[in-house]
């Protein structure tokens, strides 16, 4: 039985010109311990898949039209919103693209980290919470904990912010970590550090990883299995070794021949 299984997922949102199908009947399985990559251009629906898994579609004004998302035996989409609160941040976590805007600008970073512990461990004492926060920061290779704790996010660099977001995501030792373009908006050197960090954490904690990216190189280098998305559909899904050496779909063939990195913008 796969750890996460998406079945026939469809997500729609209303635009000024009509209804757009962001995700159109997508199915895939993610096995425990696997690194699963979803590749596609922006607008291909890859981020909407992640939003649906995290039940965040409402915020973007999108709606899950149909489908099932099984985490072990539980269909996440059948749970009430309140029941999902016990799963996210504890069993399934996510880090987002462009860390600049994903930390609350008016709350001190330390409080935001501690909150992630507290919400799933309400009985812990203050010092225990602080201890866990400190060890999470250590895991993402952030020293200078005191300064970071008392800072607001605008005082930190992009790389530091992404590390903090990563620390918050892994602080409760989840089973699944979804990383949506985790390196966008960061310097090339920092990009590599973050990728290495995620891989390192995977090794240490036995995470199951879902990496969403437009960068074929990342998918090829780091993932076990890759799904290629285009216009809301998965057009090919296979072990990464095969898909990059021997793609079956015409579009995927083009992609792998032309360039390793898909342009973020539609041409």
């Amino acid at each position: 039985m796969p750890l996460l299984s998406v079945k026939n997922l469809s997500v729609e949102y209303k635009a000024s010109f009509g209804v757009v199908k962001a995700v159109d009947g997508v199915s895939f399985d993610v096995e425990k311990g696997e690194v699963f990559a979803i590749v596609g251009r922006s607008g291909s629906g890859k981020s909407s898949v992640a939003s649906a898994i995290m039940r965040l579609t409402d915020i973007d004004g999108a709606q899950i039209k149909s489908g099932e998302i099984f985490y072990r035996e539980t269909d996440l989409l059948k749970l009430s919103f309140d029941d999902t609160r016990k799963i996210y941040g504890k069993k399934i976590s996510m880090i987002f693209q462009d860390p600049q805007s994903y930390l609350n600008p008016v709350i001190k970073v330390g409080k935001q980290i501690e909150e992630a512990v507290k919400v799933h461990n309400p009985k812990l004492s203050k010092s225990e919470i602080k201890e866990r926060a400190a060890s999470a920061l250590k895991k993402v290779n952030l020293d200078d904990m005191q300064r970071i704790f008392n800072s607001y996010s605008h005082r930190l660099s992009g790389g530091q912010k992404q590390r903090i977001l990563t620390a918050m995501a892994i602080i409760n030792e989840p089973e699944i970590l979804i990383a949506d373009e985790p390196t966008t908006g960061l310097d090339a050197a920092v990009q590599k550090q973050i990728l290495d960090l995620i891989k390192e954490l995977k090794g240490k904690m036995g995470l199951t990883l879902i990496i969403i990216t437009h960068n074929l190189k990342i998918a090829e280098k780091h993932s076990d299995k890759t799904a290629v998305m285009r216009s809301g559909k998965i057009i090919e899904c296979a072990p990464s070794k095969e898909i990059f050496k021997n793609p079956k779909n015409e579009y995927v063939k083009q992609l792998t021949n032309v360039s390793y990195s898909l342009p973020e913008q539609m041409p």
Partner: peptide, 19 residues
């Protein structure tokens, strides 16, 4: 504000609507 990115972070941490 409820459309901002950091709200997504907050929800994905498992916070309730009220929080």
């Amino acid at each position: 504000v409820l459309k901002q990115d950091y709200i997504k972070t907050a929800y994905s941490k498992g916070l309730s609507k009220r929080q």
